[in-house]
């Protein structure tokens, strides 16, 4: 039995997203296992980023449910009960459940604890590397500073919280090998370093689910190796599940526990990396042919060609 079936952290159910007449995501359902690295793959324009945007509150999905069980297992019955109430979240004995499609973006980050990165780097370029990581701990600090009033009086509890936030930021800088660049503006760092800094910043929000949109795009082989080990470290040392969009198949096959494949907005395959790799539907989608039978033909042809 796979973890995404027995203990899902996020259940995407019948999710659709339409833009006028265009259907970007069409009735997609799958689960993300707690503690897994789940890869979301598919050809360009398959709807992967749209799906991410729905999960993180960038878009309101046209229809569908996004049930997020932050800590414990969410019982199907409880999820259904919450759906009927129309509320955003329910506190259960086994942990909180959140209906992500009902929440605004900052609450998804602050309460449900879903963090994300983008295809293009969106660091605060004018702030230092360290400050970028401290901003990510905004909510904890805002409480500690009593909405700035206690901060103004410099009370000890606030100063302790600030020190702790800076220590955590420094620890993450050390982990991504950037402690010597702490006070440089984030925009001045090399591209690969900015990628890792962005992931570290997302981790500083203390996420239960980390969504990464093509983190290896534009990285050289050494840098994507560093990225893969960073992701494994996050999965092993933190209670963070990872959902990742990635085109680099070597990265996907190396690190993921579970692969979900989209094509033209629909789900075409869902399973372990080995299962997906051998799924004729996936091969057909990637080769751009219409059905699985034709794909087998093409694969056989390619095999013959390469043996010549």
């Amino acid at each position: 039995m796979n973890r995404w079936m027995t203990d899902p952290i996020l259940r995407v159910e019948h999710l659709s997203m339409r833009f006028g007449g265009l259907i970007a995501v069409n009735d997609v359902s799958f689960s993300v296992g707690r503690g897994d690295i789940t890869a979301l793959i598919g050809p360009n324009g398959a709807g992967k980023t749209t799906l991410f945007n729905c999960i993180t509150g960038f878009y309101k999905p046209t229809q569908g449910r996004l049930a997020f069980a932050r800590e414990g297992r969410a019982d199907e019955r409880e999820v259904r009960a919450l759906t009927r109430t129309g509320k955003r979240h329910a506190r259960l004995a086994s942990g909180d459940i959140y209906m992500l499609e009902r929440m605004p973006d900052f609450e998804i980050a602050a309460k449900a604890r879903v963090a994300r990165t983008f295809q293009n780097i969106r660091l605060f370029a004018g702030m230092t590397a360290l400050e970028n990581l401290v901003v990510a701990q905004h909510n904890a600090l805002m409480h500690a500073s009593g909405w700035s009033i206690l901060g103004l009086l410099s009370v000890p509890s606030w100063r302790r919280a600030e020190t702790a936030a800076i220590e955590m930021a420094r620890a993450w800088l050390a982990r991504i090998g950037l402690e010597h660049r702490a006070d440089d503006p984030a925009g001045a760092l090399p591209y690969g370093d900015q990628r890792r800094l962005e992931i570290a910043r997302a981790m500083c929000t203390g996420p239960a689910l980390l969504c990464l949109d093509e983190p290896a795009a534009g990285l050289n082989p050494r840098e994507s190796g560093e990225l893969a080990s960073l992701l494994r470290l996050i999965r092993d040392e933190h209670v963070t599940s990872i959902l990742i969009i990635e085109h680099d198949m070597s990265v996907v096959m190396k690190i993921s526990d579970h692969v979900v494949v989209l094509d033209y907005g629909a789900l075409i395959s869902d399973g372990t990396p080995d299962y997906v790799r051998n799924d004729p539907n996936v091969i057909a989608a990637y080769l751009g042919v219409s059905d699985a039978a034709e794909a087998e033909q093409v694969v056989a042809e390619i095999a013959r060609e390469s043996h010549k």
Binding site: D105, R122, F124, G126, V135, H138, L141, M142, G151, R201
Partner: peptide, 21 residues
């Protein structure tokens, strides 16, 4: 304070600041 940092973050990238909570 955290408030000032949040203001500077919103100044640079409003959407990203929201995604950090």
């Amino acid at each position: 304070t955290a408030l000032g940092r949040a203001q500077r973050a919103v100044e640079q990238d409003r959407k990203m600041a929201a995604l950090l909570g």
